[in-house]
Amino acid sequence: MSLLEVTDLAVHLFTNRGVVRAVDGVSFSLDAGRSLGIVGESGCGKTMTALSLMRLIPEPPARIVSGSIRFDGEDVVTMSSPRLRALRGNQIGMIYQDPMTSLNPVFTVGEQIAEAVRLHRHDTRNAAWARAVEVLRLVGIPDPDRVASAYPHQLSGGMRQRVVIGMALACDPKLLVADEPTTALDVTIQAQILELLRRLQGELGTGIILITHDLGVIADLVDDVVVMYAGKLVEHAPVRRLFAAPRHPYTQGLLRSVPSLETREHRLLTIDGTVPPAHAMPNGCRFNPRCALVRDICHEQEPPLVDAGGGTQVACWALT
């Protein structure tokens, strides 16, 4: 049985300008100890997908309208709040995009980590604090005893993100969801944080879902990749396969637009056009206005996700 099984997930935003289908029929699964990358441009629904896994989406305006998220066999979508709280921070840890804003400014980082430990393990105050210090050491913070008593504003961005990662790992979760964990950081710090995630995955065997818009980030960190476009899953493939033989025209475009030192392109290639506005999605395949391979059926029907060999699944009429 897989650790996480997302089936046909749909998250809609109910706004004044109409319903936005932020996540529309997305399915994927993850086995224990494995890792999955979710890639796409901003606004493609990847963060909504990540937040849905623990039902952390802002309600209202967002709501999970259909589908199921089975974690260890239990459906998160229909789970009672006490069960959900027992899951959050305990079985599933979350790393957020911006470490500058995701820590509470009025509590020390040690308190913030120990809080999760006390909640889920019912440890004493001292034991929870000791665990917080231990976790800080685990995520590579020098002098963790001192840092535990520091407030977030006394730490740098990279240190804060290590704290957030430590907080997510404090209760030994089976799954770690990282929502763009390096986007808000300097490039040198980005590499350190990615290295840390890689090391932790190896040491702890935690399942990881890594959400990013940066293909370079996932290349050597995840086993499988899901590519999302405008709320839809367009391609699902093992990571090597995705880089070696991308199938969907959108994935190909994404890979072409990654700058490379090996080819002698003078201009960086881009994908023509922009993501359509959320409340005015085209009929049929949502990528059709930007697609070079577009044909009549693309304007009429949404392409189903089909097997394309080599473990790749792709949703494109041109390939079926």
Binding site: M54, T101, N104, E115
Partner: peptide, 15 residues
């Protein structure tokens, strides 16, 4: 609306 409130919920803190 702040992110750290979401962080607290994500830790399993009761509302």
């Amino acid at each position: 609306k702040r992110d750290y409130v979401r962080t607290a919920r994500g830790k399993g803190v009761a509302e």
